[in-house]
Design a protein around this nucleic acid. Structure first.
Lengths: 205, 205
DNA sequence: TACATAAGTTAACACTGTTAACCTGTACGC
DNA sequence: GCGTACAGGTTAACAGTGTTAACTTATGTA
């Protein structure tokens, strides 16, 4: 009977976890703090999650899903392959800037800082690549993109985007470099790297 | 008198810290473990470093320095701007692959996972950008690179490289995607994004 | 009524970074 | 030679962490 009326404890934990993450950051993200937030003992979390990493993976999964949904949407709305690529790139950046801490945990899987992201969950993450991959294929069909391996290219494209975002978030940019300008320039360079190399499509003048 | 004969405690700490990092990973990197390694009390570390982050920053600084030295060397050895860019990119990847855990702490500064990298130390890190920046400028002068803001471009270039490396290290690549091929493709796309857009330089027949 | 099971609890373990208080030898002024 | 300042170390303690084991308590079923 407590199915729809109130959140299950598992859902409460996830919600509290996200809130703690957003307000305190990953560094101060602790199970006891989450438990305190919803007035429950810390060990109760273990009834619903294998361990801390498992809980974080769940947050990650949700964030990835939201990101992918956004990307799919802007890709569908934009007109033409190049515009779609641009839209996806900018949406990726927008999402990461708006959800910095969630974006960061997405990329925490790397390194030995955490247990590796489980394979089953990895499938969902792959959706983002498929979106980019099909946009690239569209571009190839329209003779705008030069690429014989769209799946591979989707991965490299994604990696480049992440790199840009990573530098922005690390706040390591030279003070003489404007953030927005950096983003604009980077995206332009990235996309240029996939365009066919003839003067035909370059609409600069 | 103990100046040259033996390592100072500070140096011993740094050395032990690196060893712990390399063998245990950042996740199991603890001050007490380092202290145990050199038979000293954990609190002694505080006599030589402000705190854990400060010690890590020191490791980071050294790693960055080594990386920059390598980049400078290969840039000097390569012939022509495009070849230099390629050499730098591949050396960056090679270094990161060979020194994964050290590379990872370099990019831990980001996020709130750690105190921000102090400004004074940031200056040294900037050297890497200068190397790329000057190679790019060389390319512009030779009409091979289209870029009016070499410093900005150095940052975008660097960011993309890091993104590629980050994806490789996260082991998140689709199993159908070969790592080396991914790296090759990515570097090609990155560099293509900076080349002038005429058929002149494309030496693909 | 008895019992199994689900969902929670408390207590404890082995860690962690960090601080405060204490010790101990060496250098130096008198 | 004596007192003192101080650099460089120590131990003890605090407040926090993830995680496990053992215990409780309610609920549904045979």
């Amino acid at each position: 009977m407590s199915k729809t009326k109130e959140l299950s404890l598992k859902e409460q934990i996830i919600e509290a976890a996200r809130q703690v993450l957003l307000s305190e950051g990953y560094r101060n993200f602790s199970l006891r703090k989450i438990a305190r937030e919803i007035d429950v003992s810390a060990t109760s979390i273990y009834l619903h999650f294998e361990n801390k990493d498992d809980l974080i993976h769940t947050l990650m999964e949700q964030a990835i899903e939201r990101l992918n949904d956004q990307l799919q949407q802007v890709a569908a709305e934009a007109d033409g392959p190049i515009a779609k690529l641009e839209a996806v790139a900018y949406e990726y950046i927008r999402f990461a800037l708006k959800n910095q801490r969630e974006y960061q945990i997405i990329h925490l899987t790397s390194s030995d800082e955490m247990t590796r992201y489980p394979k089953e969950k990895f499938r969902k993450a792959r959706k983002g690549y498929e979106i980019i991959s099909s946009v690239l294929q569209e571009g190839v069909n329209a003779d705008l993109i030069a690429e014989d391996k769209p799946r591979m290219a989707a991965y490299t494209f994604w990696a480049q985007l992440h790199g840009v975002m990573s530098v922005v978030l690390s706040k390591r940019l030279d003070t003489r470099i404007d953030q927005q300008e950096f983003i604009d320039e980077a995206i332009e360079h990235i996309i240029d790297g996939y365009k066919v190399r003839t003067a035909l499509q370059t609409n600069n003048k």
